[in-house]
């Protein structure tokens, strides 16, 4: 039996996390659910959310795993500072992230200006901006998770691979990456969920247009302005989808890894 000093706060903590979700379920106008689910706005937002979260996760993997490798396996001056900076988006309010992205990738931004000038590309108010916003807030989760896994993995296995004739890249691909696969999977799941729930940076950087940049969280927020019932239904949909996806992923990856 767990000591009461642990058990009581634990139960309170559990209740604190679950009761709001329960409230959502209880207050949901279940009758409206099918109609809402069938409505093109909701379907559009849902599809956009899933697509953008997945794309943001993919982008995070593409950029974040090498970054994590750099942080875990190489030495360069200022590495501690870089590591601290990488995790800044974790603590930054997402709206601030959105503003920062706008300042850089906006039409008059540091980078965006040139993109616009040279290639005629304008990122804000596009689906690409949603993906970027999601990546910005989600990638640190992935980097932290993968870096931890890389640090835990035995570097000497890399050396063993080198003595067998494997180049750095082959070593990374055939030894390091398979060894940290559980960490990468966990990080990807974290990043995906973070990107799926992303609101602040998205609405600030990508704007809000149905079918293009209006993801589920934005739809929930704006529905709250006019039709709270609809907002509850949308929240519920988001909740169900995330739970379903997480459960599936757990089965497939995390379960396999923790075996």
């Amino acid at each position: 039996m767990a000591p009461a000093l642990l058990l009581v706060p634990a139960l309170f903590g559990l209740a604190f996390l679950l009761v709001p979700l329960l409230g959502l379920v209880l207050r949901a106008p279940w009758g409206e659910l099918p109609a809402q689910l069938g409505s093109p706005e909701v379907l559009g937002a849902l599809r956009l959310s899933l697509v953008c979260a997945t794309a943001a996760t993919a982008l995070s993997l593409l950029l974040g795993v090498p970054l994590a490798w750099l942080l875990a396996r190489s030495t360069f001056p200022g590495k501690r500072l870089v590591r601290a900076l990488v995790t800044v988006p974790l603590v930054l309010p997402p709206v601030v992230g959105g503003v920062a992205l706008l300042v850089v990738f906006g039409r008059r931004g540091l980078v965006g200006e040139h993109l616009h000038e040279w290639f005629g590309v304008s990122l804000p108010f596009t689906t690409g901006a949603v993906v970027l916003a999601g990546t910005f807030v989600a990638m640190p989760f992935l980097v932290v998770s993968v870096e931890g896994a890389l640090r835990a993995a035995d570097v000497r296995l890399d050396e063993a691979a080198a003595t067998l004739g494997a180049s750095r890249w082959v070593t990374f691909r055939r030894v390091t990456l398979p060894l940290v696969a559980p960490g990468v999977a966990a990080g990807a799941v974290l990043a995906w969920t973070r990107a799926l729930g992303e609101f602040g940076a998205t609405i600030t950087f990508a704007g809000n247009f149905p079918g293009r940049t209006q993801t589920m969280p934005l739809a929930v927020y704006l529905a709250m302005e006019s039709n709270p019932e609809a907002a509850i239904v949308l929240s519920l949909v988001l909740l169900l989808v995330s739970v379903a996806v997480l459960a599936l992923l757990r089965e497939r990856w995390m379960g396999g890894a923790s075996r």
């Binding site: 804000p124 108010f125 609405i203 600030t204 990508a206 704007g207 809000n208 247009f209 149905p210 940049t213 209006q214 934005l218 927020y221 704006l222």
Partner: peptide
């Protein structure tokens, strides 16, 4: 291109 969440945004 976008429907902002309020007038200030």
């Amino acid at each position: 291109d976008t429907y902002e969440r309020d007038v200030r945004a």
